[in-house]
């Protein structure tokens, strides 16, 4: 086989092996596309029964009642339980609410850390702080949740929530009964989990600020904070927003930590002290009960929840990606604020 190593035919053999190699790697590389397609098809197929049977009620009602003890009936060709109602509003509100709270806490903290790394802090701390952020991002979600049960939730119940209630009682969302797990603990734990993302992407964007602009500001007699606020932050604005949206995407889909500290509510929260439930936390904790539904509708409804969650996170992540990589810093207009 290797006799005529220097013949023409060997060259042909070589180019064939190259094209085979190319095609095989191409196939493997397009798996990311294939996976997404499979994901969408399977999710859609699995939740079809719920989409058809539950219709708009799925998005507009707050009751999640599988009615597993009633009788199986047939609706539009799918089997369902008589008297069941699947409404995702409680979980949807919980997901959005806790993620927004996480952003409210996480963005200022993340940007503050980024400012400290890139502007204020001593250079020799940059590496260690960045490494700490990365290690923090690596801590498993379920461990954050365990810490939440042990430390954060009790702290909120005993100290933080009563303090809020004492000083902000005139605002309705800060009054009334305090539950140990819920809105506040979910939002805070999510904030902790997205701070590393926001901080590191903001830091990268801030590092792009031209030294010349910063020096121009310094030569005009701006303090360090004024340079940061008037020159660095406006310049890095797109990166900061992109990082925050990426953090939002993570918070929306975050499952285990929230499942442990959300309180597992099946009603809408009235105050910040209420227990909540989120799409992801509800899905992960409901598999056992879903199996008890003889019509299979419960499993399909969980699929529709997953589909909704996927849709939200996809929209969020795509917009973050467009902001962070494309057109990022390409537009100097409106970059510096006065």
């Amino acid at each position: 086989m290797g006799e005529t190593t220097h013949s023409l035919s060997d060259k042909r053999y070589r180019s064939i092996s190259d094209s085979v190699y190319k095609i095989v790697t191409l196939a493997l590389c397009s798996m990311s596309f294939v996976f997404i397609i499979i994901l969408l098809i399977v999710l859609f197929h699995a939740s079809l029964a719920s989409i058809v049977v539950n219709g708009l009620r799925f998005f507009t009602t707050t009751t999640w009642n599988p009615a597993i003890n009633s009788k199986v009936i047939s609706v539009d060709g799918f089997s369902a339980m008589w008297g069941a109602n699947y409404g995702m509003l409680v979980f949807f509100v919980g997901t959005l609410g806790s993620s927004i709270l996480a952003l409210l806490v996480g963005v200022p903290v993340g940007v503050g850390i980024a400012l400290f790394i890139s502007e204020f802090g001593p250079k020799r701390l940059d590496g260690p702080i960045t490494l700490l952020l990365q290690l923090m991002a690596g801590i498993p979600s379920v461990i954050f949740g365990f810490w939440g049960i042990l430390i954060l939730s009790p702290w909120i119940r005993k100290f933080f929530a009563p303090a809020l209630g004492k000083y902000l009682f005139f605002i309705p969302i800060f009054s009334g009964q305090v539950y140990s797990s819920g809105f506040l603990s979910s939002g805070f734990i999510l904030a902790l989990m997205i701070i590393p993302i926001i901080a590191s992407i903001s830091r990268d964007a801030m590092a792009q600020t031209p030294v010349l602009l910063k020096e121009g500001g310094r030569a005009l007699g701006l303090t360090d904070w004024e340079i940061s606020r008037k020159i660095v932050i406006p310049y890095a604005r797109q990166g900061i927003i992109g990082g925050s949206i990426l953090g939002l995407g993570r918070a929306l889909g975050e499952t285990m930590a929230v499942a442990l500290v959300c309180g597992g509510a099946d009603f809408l929260p009235k105050t910040m002290f209420y227990p909540i439930n989120t799409l992801s936390a509800f899905i992960v904790t409901s598999l056992d009960s879903a199996f008890t539904d003889p019509s299979g509708m419960y499993v399909a409804a969980l699929g529709e929840l997953a589909l909704v969650l996927l849709a939200i996170t996809m929209i969020v992540n795509i917009s973050a990606r467009l902001l962070v990589s494309k057109g990022f810093l390409s537009n100097p207009e409106n970059v510096v604020q006065v």
């Binding site: 990311s32 995407g249 992801s280 996927l310 996170t313 996809m314 992540n317």
Partner: peptide, 8 residues
């Protein structure tokens, strides 16, 4: 996009 899909 895949990296951003919630693991659940």
């Amino acid at each position: 996009i895949l990296a951003g899909v919630p693991s659940i």
